[in-house]
């Protein structure tokens, strides 16, 4: 007798747990030939709010980890992805991706995670400065995480765009609320499972599946989200994010990128999601008797 396969329930990822959407709603995900793949959570604005709460709670712990430790954890994500790469590829194919593109998408995504793993303990050094002020003060500027960031990758690149936006965000010590691709949601959920088993503390990454038309507004208007980063959004959604962000002066970065090239990665994606903090302290008595070195 043929063995009955165990079908997977794809759930959302909030605060290190995999709940169903609090709304209890779902949408059907079908393959190209019309056969059912999964019932996917149709996330709600309450899920967005719960995610922001979880993300906020995680900011202190995540940004407080040593940069070296964050680096290792990101590298661990890449290791886990590599081990699951066949699953990522199969899911993409099941959702209608051509085989070769699915392979590319997964390979590039894993490499991108490794790329950002390496930045965690370097960007502060490269971006920071000691400022030679014209008074007797020691003055330095360091980059600090912005806090909670909303991540809105484009529909048609469900893994690479997501990773290309998410990794610079968390490499820089931020926590994230991600809106997964509506059309190809499986990669995001599998990534959540990877992240969950990579020593990333709960709440650092939260991933919600559902409709952009329902989720984008509550995310962009949320008063406890510090920034929004996105790519490949149409004018209408871009406008929506920018308008809704005004309430608490969110920093908004929307890139025109398909992420499949060298320009799709870099230091400045980390820098965009950082705040610059400058500290002053007096220096005792320059030019005293002991200063003749």
């Amino acid at each position: 007798m043929k063995r009955l396969v165990i079908q997977k329930t794809y759930k959302i990822y909030i605060g290190g747990k995999f709940p169903r959407t609090e709304s209890g709603r779902y949408y059907k995900l079908e393959s190209n030939d019309g056969s059912a793949i999964a019932n996917v959570c149709l996330g709600s604005r309450k899920d967005v709010r719960n995610s922001v709460v979880a993300a906020r709670k995680a900011v202190g712990g995540w940004s407080g980890k040593t940069a070296f430790n964050r680096s290792q954890i990101l590298y661990r994500i890449a290791e886990m992805m590599e081990g699951r790469s066949e699953q990522f590829i199969e899911e993409l194919i099941a959702q209608g991706f051509p085989k070769s593109r699915a392979r590319e998408e997964v390979k590039e995504s894993i490499d991108r995670v490794v790329y950002y793993a390496g930045w965690c303990d370097k960007y502060v050094q490269v971006l920071g400065s000691v400022n030679p002020v014209a008074s007797s003060h020691f003055n330095f500027s360091v980059h600090e995480p912005m806090g909670v960031v909303g991540v809105v990758p484009q529909e048609n690149s469900p893994l690479l765009a997501l990773v290309s936006l998410l990794m610079p965000c968390i490499a820089g010590g931020n926590t994230a609320v991600v809106l997964a691709s509506e059309k190809y949601p499986l990669s995001a959920i599998t990534l959540a499972e990877v992240i969950n088993s990579s020593d990333v503390p709960g709440g650092v990454v939260n991933i919600i599946t559902g409709k952009l038309t329902e989720l984008l507004k509550p995310l962009s208007s949320h008063m406890d989200v510090n920034g929004i980063v996105g790519s490949g959004l149409d004018e209408e959604n871009k406008m929506l994010i920018q308008k809704e962000s005004v309430a608490n002066l969110k920093r908004v970065f929307i890139y025109n990128q398909d992420w499949q090239n060298e320009e799709g990665k870099g230091l400045y994606y980390i820098a965009d999601l950082q705040e610059v903090k400058t500290t002053w302290h007096p220096i005792e008595n320059i030019g005293g008797a002991s200063s003749s070195y």
Partner: peptide, 23 residues
């Protein structure tokens, strides 16, 4: 906050970045 003055206050300089967090 974007600028922290330790044991001093309201110091400004062209080489020193100035600007805020949040609102």
């Amino acid at each position: 906050a974007g600028v922290i003055w330790a044991n001093t206050y309201n110091k400004f300089d062209p080489t020193s970045p100035f600007g805020g967090y949040k609102e």
